[in-house]
């Protein structure tokens, strides 16, 4: 019905105007500015040609990949366990595991400092045990720890929701056919959770690539792309380079999420 269509367009209009004015237009502008620096459009290739940028890209992707793998393993084990076994205290554990659900990056950074910083728990414990203080908060390792901390709550929720939908009869069928518990995990549970793993993993990865707050809190010297962009913009006032790098970073993140969405076959919600 034509009148209905007109009404629907009218309903979309406010969000559409806002979005076009404050996202599409600025992004186009950012793209143009990225090509307006000393090196022109070559700035977009700098991330690959300039060895220091390329190094940052590699360490960014490396931390992101490690975060994704670690988070999926940890959340996969605990999520399925908590969904399958109902015992007294189960609810409390779920509550604890999902409590940091929406901690901002800066706070996550601070949590890492509390654990692995100069006055952190790990340092105190290792000093008491070995005499050497283990401090790794202000490095890539600390950043990795922070991203895992950030990603666990939402990944566990995704895994638990997916595990709940797994039909227990499939497992019973596999067991009736003689499959051992490990085979059941391998042949039934993991394939059943695959879409959830892909979508949750993509979000972990995207977050770890683009997040800024955690790295900012830990140390300005951590060599990951968001920090490089930030220093280019504020310290070097190299706006064109910052624009080009952030545009590339945005494109990389978006592509990862889009690929995951196609692979998982369902919609993947990203989160920052």
């Amino acid at each position: 019905m034509r009148r209905d269509v007109r009404r629907l367009i009218l309903l979309l209009l406010p969000a559409g105007i806002f979005f076009a004015a404050f996202f599409l237009l600025p992004m186009a502008k950012l793209f143009a500015i990225g090509g307006s620096g000393k090196t022109g459009w070559a700035a977009y290739a700098a991330i690959l040609t300039d060895s220091s940028y390329f190094g940052s890209l590699l360490s960014t992707l490396g931390v992101a990949a490690a975060t994704t793998v670690a988070t999926l393993i940890i959340s996969g084990i605990s999520g399925v366990f908590l969904q399958r076994h109902k015992f007294p205290g189960n609810g409390a554990l779920v509550a604890m595991l999902t409590f940091p659900l929406a901690f901002p990056g800066v706070v996550i950074g601070f949590m890492v400092i509390m654990l692995a910083g100069r006055q952190g728990l790990i340092g105190q414990v290792t000093q008491a045990l070995t005499g050497d203080k283990l401090v790794f908060a202000y490095s890539l390792a600390g950043l990795f720890m922070g991203y895992v901390y950030f990603s666990i709550p939402r990944t566990i929720l995704t895994v638990m929701a997916a595990a709940e939908k797994l039909d227990p009869k499939l497992e019973e069928a596999a067991r009736s056919l003689g499959a051992s518990p490990w085979r059941v995990v391998l042949d039934v549970i993991i394939p059943g959770l695959k879409p959830a793993f892909i979508s949750a993993g993509a979000i972990c990865f995207a977050t770890a690539v683009g997040a800024f707050g955690t790295a900012f809190t830990l140390a300005a010297k951590i060599n990951v792309l968001p920090m490089v962009i930030y220093t280019q913009f504020t310290l070097s006032a190299n706006i064109a380079m910052a624009a080009a790098l952030s545009f590339v970073l945005g494109a990389v993140t978006w592509i990862v999420l889009a690929l995951a969405r196609t692979a998982a076959g369902s919609t993947v919600a990203a989160a920052g």
Binding site: P26, G210, Y230, S246, L249, T253, W254
Partner: peptide
């Protein structure tokens, strides 16, 4: 999906 830094830069420019 796009890092907040990029969006913020775009708004600033």
């Amino acid at each position: 999906a796009v890092p907040g830094l990029a969006t913020a830069l775009a708004l600033i420019v």
